[in-house]
Write a protein that binds this DNA or RNA. Structure first.
Length: 944
DNA sequence: CGGATCGAC
DNA sequence: CTATGTCGATCCG
């Protein structure tokens, strides 16, 4: 304990009398050190409000938490770790009757009056009142209707699908599944770093007065983010400030200061680049890293201790630097490095020095988790801000992981197929980056809420959605994502837009337009870009220009015309708008620049609420409007441009010829060969010899898959299938068998897609049309799946996510109350193997088990822990069998950073709970059975 | 290609 | 009183 180590496994208990007595505590938790955490992470990272704790000679460290950690009798498995700084902020608030005991209390946890937050109902009510009747609301309703219409269309389409079509689709999709499965790459370690409530955190850091208050960053009209205090009131990003004020009258709204955030972001990036020089920043507060190489290098580093970190000096430095310029920051950084190598002798002759280094020593190991902890630690040291992180084999998963333990936490998905699938199993699709509000709603109409449901319905989805969409769905449900970080390519467009109070005079509009063009031109010149096209739009009117443009005058000349068109089109009435923007796109690539081709686009949006939708001037109007500027008839514009393009492409890389052709390079062909080889290998490996035909349900044994496929085709063509939609539910047997069955045919996506349309058109093409020359199929395929950085989504149902992952990795399932729980860092339990000699108990300890209350004589805390584990396990199982009823899931909105206006209230839906699962689940349980089933699985079953 | 829409920060 | 600004991707006609 000299090191002030706090933390450990937390058991529910209440077994210990509180020395302070008389405080309002929701419960007492019992901390049993020695489970392996301490050896890994003495005093690591940081912020943890709302904790009380003391050291008990016999029982170790005891925490008491007053932050609504309702356990409901389910085992609570959690680690609290503190940095030395945090320790210093803790106050001794009472005497302990235990020898050596101390009672700690953190300063910032008091939930003073007015800080209680609001419950969801109240929040929704307030939002609704502030919203209803507004033009925004009407618009929102309209959009909602549009979505509903899309859904209706989709459902109609679904009705027309026959069982046969579905079956066929199933087979084809499953072929793809198998290929995808083959291409699964778990060899990379991708990290997603996400700063916690970034803007708000920066503001709080720089103005301590804000620290304890609910604040939001932004303006009265729109907030960018809020701190965690404010989130309790339902105040969150993308919410207008005036509504936030209604939710939380005490809210302090801080104006945005991008310069500052950029500076901080730069500091963070400096750290990140040490771990992956090619890391990919996503906005100011997020980044992806591929630390695969770093991990390899690190294995060769000196044993066990990599770094000393001098907490004192860096903290001092940071404090002093807070308001200084970037330059001095950098100087400070280089002159007093945070880290230095472990070669410094730890046991120095000088006892004082030794003491110092010990005090401020932090050790990080070699694992990915340790590296990420180190990164987060260094970020915190340098910026006084916390970050959350996710570690996974690809970017999509990493992104989702970083949400799991937010804020100030991290989570890892081990690089194993099963781990990935487990993670996804109950994960609501909305959490997946790329699935937004609309997609969520559409899928929900099909009964799809979780990722495993997404997998089950893959055949149906392939018939209802575009190829890009359903393939994306498939990737998601298999947990596939890009495993490498693409360098951010050149920018493709640039734009500026502004909203304003309604404006309807032509002069104003022109002057604004000019202003926009000026701004844009300035930005443009900063980046030294040249352009190709000019567009302009009413609600996006665009035009393309031959000559290249990059100055205000040039852009304005084009934009003016387009604006003029719009104004004229509604004359003599004034054009009513409340948003205008100008965009340029079609930049020249580096090579193209030589040719001085330029282009810009610009656009203008009609005011959304102004309801001026009738103005759709279309081509005719624009054609009339060709008087000035480049002054050539419209038709010839395109012709010239096309001609220029052709010219260009002939002169440059042959790959670029006609834009859309998938281009083949050596790499993808090589990959194709490789894939094919894998498939054939698999075929030869006799994985599956007996096979149940999904059509006739007869067992077919064959070692020739071609034959099997032929059988199925025959069945499909010949058999008259009775029931229509039944099978989407009932195909268990067929599905599982089929799932990873090697397929011989080399049908490609195009064909798949084509068949789909054929099927839908009702033409009963035979399925055995497989051998159209499709040599490039796999090329295309690999190309498609290998790109896609898989963009981000955020947050956040902590309780759900947490439950999910704890189920997998803990010895015991966990129920975590959602409120405030994110104030704690949860640490994974993958390091349990590393034993801790550090915390061996004294020889003849007698410990009281918090579960059974019996006294346990132990020689070590480890064995005591084992007893507690067993005890808890027993009681847990008992409890779960008694009342199968799981407490209803409640969806808090705590962490959801991006909930759009209206839907905010509608998000609180429960995912269906007791739904049967086939597909993914089935195959999982099969492979689980293959492994030895242990207690974890038993409990999982109980939870079902 | 042009325009609308989605999704993300 | 008051509902962002920018960007890329995709879908559809």
């Amino acid at each position: 304990m000299q090191h002030g180590v706090l933390g450990g496994v937390v058991y529910p208990g209440g077994c210990l009398p509180l020395p302070g007595g008389g405080r309002h505590l929701d419960f007492v938790v019992f901390v049993a050190p020695g489970a392996g955490f301490f050896s890994v992470a003495p005093m690591r990272l940081s912020v943890c409000p709302a904790l009380l704790g003391f050291w008990h000679e016999k029982c170790g460290l005891v925490f008491t938490a007053s932050c609504q950690l309702h356990l409901r009798g389910i085992k609570f498995y959690k680690t609290y770790l503190f940095s030395r700084n945090t320790m210093k902020n803790m106050k001794k608030v009472g005497d302990s009757s235990c020898s050596d005991g101390f009672l700690l209390r953190m300063g910032l946890n008091d939930n003073k009056a007015g800080m209680q937050g609001l419950d969801k109902e109240k929040i929704n009510k307030i939002i609704m009142e502030a919203t209803k009747g507004s033009r925004f609301y009407e618009n929102e309703l309209k959009k909602d209707q549009q979505v509903n219409q899309r859904i209706e269309k989709m459902m109609q389409l679904k009705e027309k699908i026959t069982a046969q079509q579905l079956l066929k689709a199933q087979l084809q999709v499953d072929k793809l599944v198998m290929e995808l499965e083959q291409s699964r790459n778990l060899n990379n370690t991708i990290v997603h770093i996400d700063m916690d409530a970034f803007y708000a955190a920066v503001e709080m850091r720089d103005n301590p007065e804000l620290k304890e208050k609910p604040i939001a960053v932004g303006s009265m009209s729109m907030l960018s983010t809020s701190n965690y205090h404010a989130r309790r009131f339902g105040v969150r990003a993308a919410m207008p400030g005036f509504i936030a004020k209604k939710l939380c009258p005490h809210l302090t709204i801080v104006p945005l200061n991008f310069e500052k955030y950029g500076k901080v972001s730069k500091e963070v990036r400096e750290i990140l680049s040490e771990y992956d020089p090619n890391f990919m920043p996503m906005g100011l507060d997020e980044a992806y890293l591929n630390i695969t190489e770093h991990l390899e290098e690190r294995q060769n580093w000196p044993e066990n201790r990599r770094f000393f970190i001098n907490t004192e000096s860096t903290t001092e430095k940071d404090k002093g630097d807070v308001n200084m310029s970037a330059k001095s920051d950098k100087d400070g950084y280089s002159s007093s490095p945070v880290l230095f190598e472990d070669n410094t002798p730890l046991m120095d002759d000088n006892p004082e020095q030794r003491h110092q280094s010990e005090e401020n020593l932090v050790v990080f190991g070699n694992s990915a988790e340790e590296v990420v902890k180190e990164i987060r630690f260094r970020i915190e040291q340098k910026t006084q801000l916390t970050a959350s992180a996710g570690i996974a084999p690809n970017t999509m998963l990493a992104k989702m992981c970083s949400d799991c333990n937010k804020p100030n936490g991290q989570y890892k998905i081990p690089p194993e197929r099963q781990a990935v699938l487990d993670f996804l199993k109950d994960l609501p699709i909305r959490k997946v980056p790329g699935i937004g509000k609309v997609t969520e709603k559409m899928l929900k109409a099909l009964g799809i809420v979780t990722c495993s449901e997404l997998y089950q319905q893959r055949a149906l989805l392939s018939l209802l959605f575009s190829e890009a969409s359903w393939r994306n769905f498939l990737d998601i449900s298999l947990g596939l994502g890009s495993t490498h970080l693409e360098k951010d390519g050149e920018r493709k467009s640039m734009s500026t837009e502004r909203t304003f109070s309604e404006m309807n005079t032509a002069e104003d509009q022109y002057s604004l337009c000019r202003e926009l063009c000026r701004d844009l031109a300035q930005e443009l010149q900063k980046e030294g870009l040249k352009l190709k096209n000019v567009n302009f739009e009413v609600k996006t009117r665009a035009s393309t220009v031959l000559s290249s443009v990059s100055t205000e005058e040039e852009i304005f000349a084009v934009a003016k015309d387009l604006l003029g068109t719009e104004i004229d089109s509604v004359a003599p009435h004034p054009l009513r708008i409340r948003l205008m923007g100008v965009r340029v796109s079609g930049f020249l690539s580096e090579e193209e620049k030589k040719y001085q081709q330029k282009s810009i686009t610009s656009f203008l949006k009609s005011g959304r609420e102004v309801g001026f939708l009738s103005l759709q001037p279309g081509m005719s109007n624009q054609e009339c409007f060709t008087k000035n500027s480049e002054a050539s008839p419209r038709g010839s514009f395109f012709d010239k441009k096309r001609a220029a393009r052709q010219l260009n492409s002939e002169n440059f890389s042959p790959n670029e010829t006609i834009g859309k052709q998938p281009f083949h390079d050596r790499k993808s062909s090589a990959k194709f060969v490789e894939e094919t080889k894998k498939v054939t290998d698999l075929q030869n490996s006799n994985v599956c010899k007996i096979f149940t035909c999904p059509v006739c349900f007869e067992e077919q044994s064959s070692n020739n898959l071609e034959e099997l496929n032929r059988h199925i085709d025959e069945c499909l063509d010949g058999t008259c299938i009775k029931d229509t939609v039944e099978m989407s539910k009932n195909n268990n047997s067929g599905e599982t068998t089929l799932n990873f069955l090697p397929q011989v045919k080399n049908e490609n996506v195009d064909e798949c897609q084509k068949n789909k349309t054929d099927q839908l058109a009702g033409s009963d093409q035979s399925a055995s049309t497989s051998n159209k020359s499709t040599s490039n199929s796999t090329d295309k395929f690999t190309q498609i799946i290998s790109d896609k950085p898989n963009r981000e989504r955020q947050p956040s149902n902590l309780s759900d996510m947490a439950r999910n992952m704890y189920m997998k990795q803990c010895l015991f399932p966990t129920r975590i109350s959602q409120d405030n729980e994110d104030h704690f860092e949860k640490t994974e339990h993958t390091e349990e193997t590393s034993s801790s000699s550090f915390f061996e108990a004294k020889e003849d300890s007698v410990l009281v088990c918090p579960v059974c209350n019996s006294e346990q004589k132990t020689t070590s805390l480890v064995s005591f822990n084992r007893h507690v584990d067993v005890c808890l396990n027993k009681s847990l199982i008992q409890e779960l069998t008694e009342k199968k009823d799981f407490p209803a899931k409640t969806y808090n909105m705590e962490n959801s950073d991006r909930v759009g206006g209206l839907s905010r209230g509608q998000q609180c839906t429960n995912p269906s709970q007791g739904t049967k699962r086939s597909g993914l689940t089935t195959s999982q349980s099969v492979s689980k059975k293959a492994k030895s089933s242990n207690s974890k699985h038993t409990i999982e079953k109980f939870l079902k």
